[in-house]
Structures are given as structure tokens and as C-alpha cells.
Simulated scan of single mutants.
Amino acid sequence: MNRSSLKYAWRSKSTGIPLRSGAAGRSTHPVWLRTVLAGFAAASLLVLAAVPSASAATDGTGGGEGRVDHRTYRTSTGENDYLVYVPKGWKESDRLPLYVNLHGCGTTAQEMIDASLVNAVADRERFLVAYPDNDGQCWRAVFHHPPSTTRGGGGDADIIAGITRETMSTYHADSNRVYLIGGSSGGFQASAMGATYPDLYAAIGVIAGGGYGTDFQTCQSLTDQNAPAYAPSAVAEMGRRAHVMPFFTIGGTNDVLGEQPAPGGCTRRAYLEWLATDNLLKPGQDGDTFRDDPASTVTGQEPGGYTWTKKVARDPKGCQIAERWIVDGMGHNWPGDAGDPKGPSTAEASWSFFKQFTLRGGNSTCHG
């Protein structure tokens, strides 16, 4: 991959725009930026452990039997590399679902392939996987960078949407079954994509990340009670394209960006914010339409690994809208697979959740 942009430290490969903390066009002062980055290094917050464990065998396809295509998304402002996994046996006449997988800070698309092992699931379940690449840099929703959290802002949200559309067109994907998930900064960006481009994605997923409108600092300082206060801004950004957004979250209890008890707990608050967002989009007559269903809570343990809890939110008819996985004792990792093999498989769990939903039909298992 072209790494020439790395000499412009922490700049977008596509635009060369510095990270910003305020309105578009106002650059962050370099001293402030160095201070923030030093804080990242000290806390080891934003580098999702997406590099496979030493015992994990990787062959560049993430355990899949298909092929990985290296592609470049080009616009008038620049270009971004991305990878597309094409499952074994794919034909141009196929209309397969598309799963978009966003890496975190300090990792690449190839490392996400190697760690997440989504491609092996894609072979079995028959879907395409797109891996946008940001040269190991953070997706900038983690800083609440306005151009990257606004449709048409020229930032990362538009870049990822463009890569999604290009993949859909090139590989004839089913536009009704497109899903997006991200880890760490990719998790923050996944929340941003759910708000900025709800007309592209049937469901989204957040791994060790935060909700729309928050950054890596504010999400830690929130309480669970005030996290839903960000829901109106998500609804406003969705605008006329809004639809109830199914969502999946997973995080560890030893991760401040995951499910750690306060302070911390960004992934938990992303769940609460998206639940509140969907309830604003579809209010009930007697309170919230979508609520956690205690009867659906499941606990388990990976052999020789972590215990976990899965919580489910449903509507009054019993139709599922959300799934929240809490992994006891896990840090800032991609859970399961080759990222942290002691956790439940995020590849299996996320696809099992996503495949219930279509963009124009809602929860297909509930007939809309």
C-alpha cells in the first residue's frame, strides 16, 4: 500500500486535513495535538489489539478460501486504499450482502483481515467484505472531527460511504443487505456512519468504541443516564433518510472504551445512545418502543477463556433491534478469532446479528 502520506503525521490520506477539535477549517495547534497523542500512548487507549496472536496462522486471506482484491478509491481530493474479500465461488451474477469492517488506530485493513477472521465466515455464509484502509491512522470520528461526522463534510464519513458504494457497484452487492462494523476509532466512525449514511447501511456494529457525537474523552466522562442525551443529534444528522438502526456492540470490562465500569464504558454508552435514538425514531404509546429483554439474556464462557454476557433489546412484538456483548476481564481487543482468542467470536456473533436485517424490510425474521 502507498504509505507516502505518513510523513504528514496524523493527516488524512485523502485530504491532508489536520485533525480538528472545532469547526471545519480551524486547525488544531500542534502542541495540543502532541499532548493528546502522548496521552494516547500513555493510556494505550486507541490501538485496538487487532494484530493476530503469535499462534494464529495467517495467510493474507484471514482463513478464507476466496481472494483479496487490492483497490483504490479516488476522488478529486485524494485517494484511499481498501481491500475487498471475494468469497470462494463468487460470480458476477451473484447479489451478495456486503460487510464493511473498519480498523482502529495503529492498525491496517490487512491486519483487520488477519485478526477478525471474518472472511472464513463470509465463505460459509456467502457475503463480501470491504476493508477501508487509513494507513494505520485513526478514523477521525474518534476526535469528533466535524467533517468526518457530517454527511457531505468531505471527511472520513464521505470516504467510507464512497468505498462502500464503489464496492457495491463493482461486485454487484445486494443494496438491501449492507452492514458496517468498526473497532476502537473504527467503532466511533461506525456510529458516525449510522447517523450520516443510514440510507446505505441496514445495521451497524461498535467494538470498543463510542456513540455518535462523542469523542474518546467525552464518552468516558458520561454517565449511563446522560448518554441518551446525544440521541437527538444522531436523529438530526440522519434527517429525512432516517430509519430505525439495528445495532450490535461488544466490549471488555477492562477497557475504558469498552464495558469498563465508570469511569469509562464508551461501548456501553454507545449502546444506550443508539437505543435512545431508535426510540426517538419510533416512539411507543406507553414509553420506549425498544427495551432490554431480561428473558433473552444469555451468559457463557469460552473454553479456557473469558466469561461473557449477551443482552438483547426488542420491541413489544418480540422483534430484536439490538445486541450487547459484555466480555468479563478483556481489555482493548477485537474479541475472539485471532485478535484475542479467549473471547467470543465477534465475526460469528456480528454476522448472526446482521443477517436478520434488511435496509428496507427491517427485521426480516419478524417480517418487518
Rank of each mutant, 00 (worst) to 15 (best):
L6M: 14
L6N: 12
L6F: 03
A9V: 08
A9K: 06
A9F: 05
W10Q: 15
R11L: 11
K13F: 10
G16L: 12
P18C: 05
R20T: 09
S21M: 12
A23N: 09
R26I: 08
S27R: 10
S27V: 11
L33A: 09
R34T: 08
R34S: 08
A38C: 01
A41R: 03
A43P: 02
V47P: 00
V47D: 01
L48G: 02
A50C: 10
P52N: 08
S53M: 04
A57D: 07
A57W: 01
A57L: 12
T58Y: 00
G62D: 06
E65C: 04
R67P: 01
H70C: 02
R71H: 06
R74W: 02
T75S: 09
S76T: 02
V86P: 01
W90V: 04
R95A: 13
L98C: 12
V100C: 01
L102T: 15
H103K: 07
C105H: 12
T107Y: 00
M112C: 01
I113N: 03
V118G: 12
N119G: 11
R124Y: 05
P132K: 02
N134F: 05
C138D: 09
T149C: 15
T150S: 10
T150D: 02
G153L: 13
G155M: 13
A157S: 09
A157P: 00
D158S: 02
T164S: 12
M168P: 04
S169R: 14
T170L: 07
A173M: 08
D174M: 08
R177M: 10
S185Q: 04
G186C: 12
G186T: 15
G186Y: 08
G187N: 15
S191Q: 12
A192P: 00
A192N: 09
Y197C: 07
P198D: 11
D199L: 02
D199Q: 05
A202C: 04
A203V: 03
I204A: 08
G205W: 09
G209A: 04
G213M: 04
Q220V: 06
L222F: 15
N226R: 10
A229G: 13
A229E: 14
A236H: 11
R240T: 14
H243W: 07
P246V: 11
P246A: 14
F247R: 11
F248W: 13
N254G: 05
G258Q: 11
G258A: 13
Q260D: 10
P261L: 10
A262T: 14
G265M: 14
A270C: 11
W274L: 15
N279K: 11
K282I: 09
K282A: 15
Q285I: 03
D288V: 02
T289F: 06
F290D: 13
P294G: 09
A295L: 03
S296F: 00
V298I: 15
V298A: 13
Y306Q: 12
T307I: 03
W308R: 05
K311F: 00
V312E: 10
V312Y: 01
A313T: 01
P316G: 01
C319F: 05
Q320V: 15
Q320A: 03
E323K: 00
W325M: 06
N333P: 00
W334A: 15
D337R: 03
D337A: 12
D337V: 04
A338T: 00
A338Q: 07
A349R: 08
F357D: 09
F357A: 11
G361Y: 03
G362P: 09
N363E: 09
